[in-house]
């Protein structure tokens, strides 16, 4: 190992502190991939991030670049304005499934439809983590949560919402890819996709989104390793991996 860059802890855009995330949570990996990408593209001093409401609400404590808070679901409205006011900056949102695909669906669809030249990192863990494990729009059928005690039932709660596929049909959307964190190989693919959504913005190509299937061992009620296996064996069957647009 000669390449010093591979020592992730030394990423310039990532503060060398412990996160508040649970053991085995995917947020830590996703944060790191974004920080690495920003360092590699040399855009740290141009980046303005918009953090969500949810477990990643204090993402700005972990990243070492400019960052704004947004009310729950409104990250893309906030990002739209930042990018319009400061087109020379690189603006991205980091949002969970509840934030992006439930309370913020309207902002999501319309920012995408306007073709805003922003990058979106969408963390799909099929659950509300911060509030204690309630059903998310992406919760799988049969999945037990604090608000679907005997499992999500399509007749009562509808089907898992495939927001990425929905967004892909919009002409304003340039790039959509679904990736996963369930193994080191998949993490590397995720890194590539994250890199791509930032590159697209730099090249002024328009709205680019990466959906990351991410483990939540705590509220799935399984071990960190079991959570990755569940993504591989179950979740990615409902949410197929790969380039959507």
């Amino acid at each position: 190992m000669k390449n010093k860059q591979k020592n992730f802890a030394q990423s310039r855009s990532l503060r060398n502190i412990s996160t508040h995330y649970c053991p085995g949570c995917g947020h830590g990996i996703a944060h790191r991939l974004i920080a690495e990408t920003i360092d590699e593209l040399g855009i740290r001093e141009k980046v303005i991030a918009v953090a969500p409401v949810g477990c990643a609400v204090i993402a700005y404590d972990y990243w070492d670049f400019d960052c704004s808070e947004a009310a729950h679901g409104r990250a893309m409205a906030v990002a739209t304005a930042i990018k319009r006011v400061r087109p020379q900056n690189i603006v991205f949102t980091y949002q969970g499934d509840g934030d992006l695909a439930a309370i913020g669906t309207n902002e999501t669809i319309h920012a995408a439809n306007r073709g805003e030249n922003i990058s979106v990192v969408f963390i799909n863990n099929a659950i509300y983590g911060m509030t204690g494990g309630q059903m998310a729009p992406t919760t799988l059928l049969g999945q037990k949560t604090a608000t679907t005690l005997s499992g999500r039932d399509a007749r009562l709660q509808g089907h898992p919402l495939k927001i990425s596929e929905m967004l892909a049909v919009l002409p304003g959307v340039k790039f959509v890819e679904r990736v996963s964190l369930h193994s080191p190989q998949e993490v590397m693919k995720t890194k590539k996709a994250v890199h791509q959504i930032f590159k697209n913005q730099i090249d002024n190509l328009g709205f680019s989104l990466v959906e990351i299937l991410s483990p939540c061992p705590t509220y799935w009620g399984i071990s960190p390793k079991g959570a990755l296996e569940w993504i591989r064996d179950v979740m990615s069957k409902e949410f197929p991996l790969g380039r959507i647009k």
Partner: peptide, 26 residues
Amino acid sequence: RVFIQAESEIAAINMVFGAAAAGARA
């Protein structure tokens, strides 16, 4: 200067939040 017809009043005020955060008179 920037004019946006937002998708809702909620989006509009949050756009104002973003623009103000970026230093604009919003």
